[in-house]
Design a protein around this nucleic acid. Structure first.
Length: 1009
RNA sequence: GCCGAAGUGGCGGAAUUGGUAGACGCGCACGACUCAAACUCGUGUUCGAAAGAGUAAGGGUUCGAUUCCCUUCUUCGGUACCA
């Protein structure tokens, strides 16, 4: 019987589903192993061959762990709320639920074809009310909690209330303050607290809740009609859709992730993730140590602030301060600006505030700012220091104000140069350090700004003579003891905006009474998504949920109209898989304890600062509240590399596309009509005009450079000759283009059959070549995308070669973590391997034939060598070398003509995690009754590999020259004697005496001359 | 700019602790089968006629370096007025 993968794969997919072969039991006596893939968003485009790469790797590992006797949890589900379905709904009027369901069905169908061992009974969907009920429940827990810095964990809000009842609140310096709060909270006493009315109390508590409603500058995306979190914005454009994003002050639900900044940073050291992802998170959190420092404002008319607080990482440079800069949005700006400067400052502030994020970014090199007219006093010298406003200072970072030390900071330096402000050097560059390359103005001898933390302090009073590190310490101590400020740690991490002005997301379980937000009771969940007539904002700019009829809490209070962001549901889904049907809890404590951390998490690195940070945050929160027993969700993380498409490009001379008329005609006007007239006169004129000419790359470059090309001119002439002067096609350099064609059309870079191209797309219906023979395409490796016609779907692959070949081939392409191009030419090699493997079990007549009895020594050696390699490869996630080792083993068994039952049985178990269908089929044929899934992984026995002799490579000065086989029983001296006696040795010694002979028994001989 | 990863035949890649560089596969060439082609099977395939050279380039440590150290270059990914 031939290897009929279609029948075999169909058969086993069915059997696995019927028998629920991969169902994870909750039997807690077995050791567990949790393998997770990143939650897919079911997009309308379906899967391409790049998506399953990680799923295949995790599936192989899951199957391997099952063979080792683990109770394996390997679930799959869908992150099914999200923008694309909603955008589609807006365009078509279809309910996003409908399209989402269709997309999920397509995904499921595609996934099923690849033979994954998912436990589908545990599937979750974030848009399912039974699931988002618990997302809402977690939101409520966050709302009812605060972060207590004294215990360093989240607690119920009651403990904060009791602090207020006992201590009141002493203002910004109070040690109970955590994370970022949006606005300064004024101090109050315990007595005050008791006298506050309900609304006031709620307002105060809002500054501490872990999810809270606050006013903040947000990333507003007008095209999407919603705000976005920082990680959803890339270079001033939305990550989804690429629409421009601007800054806007809005009242928003946010998550106080900043409270967890330090813990999120610290516990990175406890998890096994790639260094690059950890670094990305460290940078995103952006911890910096320094000092906060107060500058008294002189001659101020301000009532609330008599000082400007700045944050600096370089308190050592305090004597080099020559001005202070405020962010344009800084609240003190209006208060301190003098009458003379008011007009100028107002104009600047207005302009800066309205500039979009994008403009600001595009414009980083332009220096702008304005003097306020006011001054602060230097805390140590008492000198007058001017206060400026500049948009290089960001309101969201630190205090929104900087002490400018132009001699030792790049931006301060540029600002000072631009406005002619004084520059005081306070650190001497050490002799042995090279001149900085910056500060190119040529002034200051190119010496400034000196920004490295090296050198000795000068012009700095009590800091003189110290080196930078010591000076920082001393300065902080001095600032602290004189009451000018204190040592402080700052984070770049911002609180995460949580509300989205969109329809297709979890409703936020909040209603408003007298303008004050309250969360729903837990027994009122889920708050289901109401029906709306349109998925657009209302006329007065309210989110789509405001369209819902009679959608009010207790029929009178308005619900919150924004919904949760895409990352809400995916921040805890790994917990739900442990207990997906639980209607009383989000996960039972017992099950959470048993399954514990995800042991292996595989997914793309694009989630580095989004999903992977938010999940860690929620996990820590749930841990703090005692619902789960582990502080970090994902123990080991592997980022699979992207599979890139291998696009094919052709160079063509194309029409100026006016309607369907390709070439500009010499006929004066009304081209289309001209053509029709011509067609009557000369049949074939239209076709001639619609021709597309394929040109070689060099001709293309010639046209681009010179505007024309001789051969192409000649071709044009010929094409249109018969139509006379009425119609002469013309072209210019703009008509020569490089354009993608379907990857499947050329073989390698050769386009052998022009007819295939003609049939592929109307545009090429009358395509011709300038030069006879195979057309040479240019190939390029780039991301798969529809517009480049380089997308390959797993479906077509499975149809042609089978799922087992796909699984092996994707692994064989290269290391899991590396990006690699998809090259269809190598498939045959892998497919052939499976056929050769199949043949090991069959005789010449294609009849199933295995022999019993003792296997040969050689076969045992091959087998055990392979067991070791396969296991080692799996343990270090080196799936590509795993496939190679299967090929080597199969080649060896074929040479040995080995068809021994016991040897092949063990090979089947090894192969079953990579190519499960063929393994199951042969396993059944060989006479086994149970699925191979729960067989036992073969035990490696080193005895079979013991050799009596070794072929020693003999090197001269480290260069291998020849080999000699010697018994392994010889010791170093004996080996040296044998080698030195050889004729070959004498030849390479060229009569010289060897200086030294290195012998490593069992490894190598090296002769030093 | 900063951070991270990587650079090995015509191509994807291997070399696990410093010990035979190029496993395995593709492609290519030749041969067998065939009227012929495809498929399949077999042989060869880093460069060089050879001596020899050779893992981005240069230097270092070592008996010995793809592997460790230093300098430089290139590519990819992330990130950026963060004080």
């Amino acid at each position: 019987m031939e290897y009929d993968f279609r029948e075999i794969e169909k058969k086993w997919r069915k059997k696995w589903a019927e028998n629920k072969t991969f169902s994870a039991s909750d039997d807690q006596t077995k050791p567990k192993y949790y393998v997770l893939d990143m939650f897919p968003y079911p997009s309308g485009a379906g899967l391409h061959v790049g998506h399953p790469l990680g799923y295949i790797a995790s599936d192989i590992f899951s199957r391997y762990k099952r063979l080792q006797g683990y109770n394996v949890l390997h679930p799959m589900g869908y992150d099914s709320f999200g923008l694309p379905a909603e955008q589609y709904a807006i365009q078509t009027g279809q309910h996003p639920e409908k399209t989402t369901k269709e997309n999920i069905a397509r995904y499921r169908d595609q996934l099923d074809k690849i033979g994954f061992s998912f436990d589908w009974d545990r599937e979750v969907r974030t848009s399912d009310p039974n699931y988002y009920k618990w997302t809402q429940w977690i939101f409520i827990q966050l709302f009812n909690s605060w972060y207590n810095p004294r215990t360093n964990k989240a607690e119920k809000i009651d403990t904060l209330i009791s602090v207020f009842e006992k201590e009141g609140f002493s203002g910004n310096g109070h040690d109970i303050l955590t994370g970022d709060i949006e606005k300064d909270l004024l101090p109050f006493s315990a007595e005050d607290w008791k006298n506050f009315d309900e609304q006031k109390k709620q307002e105060v508590l809002m500054n501490f809740r872990l999810t809270y409603l606050g006013e903040a500058y947000v990333n507003w995306c007008p095209a999407l009609g919603t705000v976005l979190a920082n990680d959803e914005v890339k270079d001033g454009f939305s990550e989804r859709g690429g629409h421009p994003v601007e800054r806007k002050l809005m009242k928003q639900w946010s998550m106080r992730i900043t409270a967890y900044a330090q813990r999120l940073l610290d516990s990175l050291d406890t998890i096994d993730w790639s260094e690059s992802i950890k670094e990305a998170q460290r940078n995103w959190i952006g911890r910096s140590e320094g000092a906060s420092l107060k500058f008294q404002i002189q001659n101020t008319k301000s009532q609330t602030g008599e000082f400007i607080e700045v944050f600096t990482t370089r308190p050592d440079t305090i004597f080099g301060v020559s001005f202070v800069t405020l962010a344009p949005e800084h609240e003190l700006v209006s208060q301190i600006t003098t009458a003379e400067q008011k007009a100028e400052v107002d104009a600047y502030v207005t302009k800066a505030k309205n500039r979009s994020e994008r403009e600001r970014m595009a414009d980083v090199n332009t220096i702008s700012g304005v003097f306020t007219g006011s001054y602060v006093e230097h805390p140590f010298t008492g000198k007058q220091i001017p206060i400026w406003v500049g948009d290089y200072v960001l309101v969201g970072y630190g205090t929104g104000a900087v002490m400018a030390v132009p001699a030792h900071d790049e931006r301060d330096y540029k600002f000072a140069k631009h406005f002619g402000l004084p520059i005081t050097q306070v650190i001497e560059r050490p002799q042995d350090f090279p001149l900085p390359r910056r500060g190119t103005e040529g002034e200051d001898g190119g010496n400034l700004p000196w920004t490295d933390k090296e050198g000795k302090l000068i012009n700095s009073d009590f800091l003189n003579g110290l080196d930078v590190k010591a000076a920082i310490k001393k300065a902080i101590a001095e600032i602290d003891s004189r009451g000018f400020g204190k040592g402080q740690v700052n984070y770049r991490l911002r609180n995460a905006v949580f509300g989205r002005q969109r329809y297709w997301g979890e409703p936020i379980p909040v209603y408003y009474k007298n303008g004050t937000p309250y969360v729903l009771n837990e027994n009122e969940l889920p708050l289901t998504l109401p029906e709306v007539d349109k998925y657009l904002p209302t006329e007065d700019g309210e989110p789509p949920l405001a369209r819902a009829n009679n959608w009010k809490y207790q029929n009178q209070f308005d619900y919150e109209h924004s919904t949760m962001p895409g990352w809400a549901g995916s921040s805890w889904y790994f917990l739900r898989y442990m207990d997906p049907k639980n209607s009383g809890e989000f996960v039972s404590k017992k099950k959470a304890e048993y399954w514990g951390q995800v042991d292996l998490y595989i997914g793309g690195s694009e989630h580095a600062t989004g999903h992977l940070l938010y999940s860690r945050f929620w996990n820590k929160f749930l841990y703090d509240l005692g619902y789960i027993s582990f502080d970090e969700p994902f123990k080991k993380l592997i980022n699979q590399g992207m599979i890139l498409g291998n696009s094919a490009y052709v160079y063509v001379v194309l029409p100026q596309t006016q309607g369907h008329i390709p070439f500009t005609l010499s006929a004066h006007h009304g081209e289309h009509e001209e053509i029709i007239k011509l067609e009557e006169k000369f049949p074939g004129a239209q076709i001639a005009a619609r021709k597309v000419l394929l040109i070689p790359e060099d001709v293309y470059h010639d046209i681009k450079k010179n505007g024309s090309n001789k051969e192409v001119d000649a071709w044009f002439k010929k094409q249109f000759a018969e139509f006379g002067d009425d119609m002469i096609g013309s072209y210019s350099s703009g008509n020569a283009i490089r354009t993608a064609i379907d990857v499947s059309l050329p073989e390698g870079d050769r386009l052998k059959d022009l007819n295939k191209l003609r049939q592929w797309h109307r545009q090429y219906e009358y395509a011709e070549q300038l030069i006879e023979g195979d057309y040479v395409c240019s190939r390029e490796v780039e991301k798969m995308s529809k517009s480049k016609y380089n997308v390959q779907t797993p479906d077509e692959f499975v149809e042609k070669f089978g799922a087992d070949t796909l699984r092996l081939y994707e692994m064989f392409l290269g290391p899991l973590e590396q990006a690699k191009p998809w090259d269809t030419q190598g498939i045959n090699g892998v497919h052939n391997f499976l056929r050769r493997f199949w043949r090991l079990f069959h005789n010449d007549k294609n009849e199933f034939a295995v022999t019993d009895g003792e296997p040969s020594k050689e076969s045992l050696k091959t087998l055990h060598k392979t067991i070791k390699k396969i296991q080692d490869d799996l343990e270090r996630f080196s799936f590509n070398t795993g496939v190679s080792n299967f090929m080597i083993a199969t080649n060896e068994f074929t040479d040995q003509k080995c068809n021994n039952r016991s040897v092949l049985c063990e090979m089947l178990i090894l192969l079953s995690s990579y190519a499960p269908h063929i393994a199951e089929e042969l396993w059944e044929k060989i006479g086994e009754k149970e699925s191979i899934t729960y067989a036992a992984f073969p035990k490696f026995n080193p005895e079979y590999l013991i050799e009596s002799s070794f072929e020693y490579p003999v090197s001269f000065n480290g260069k291998m020259r020849f080999k000699i086989e010697l018994p392994l029983t010889l010791n170093a001296a004996e080996i040296e004697k044998e080698v030195m006696a050889l004729e070959n040795t004498a030849k390479y010694l060229e009569g010289k005496a060897p200086k030294k002979v290195i012998v490593v028994p069992g490894k190598i001989v090296n002769v030093v001359m």
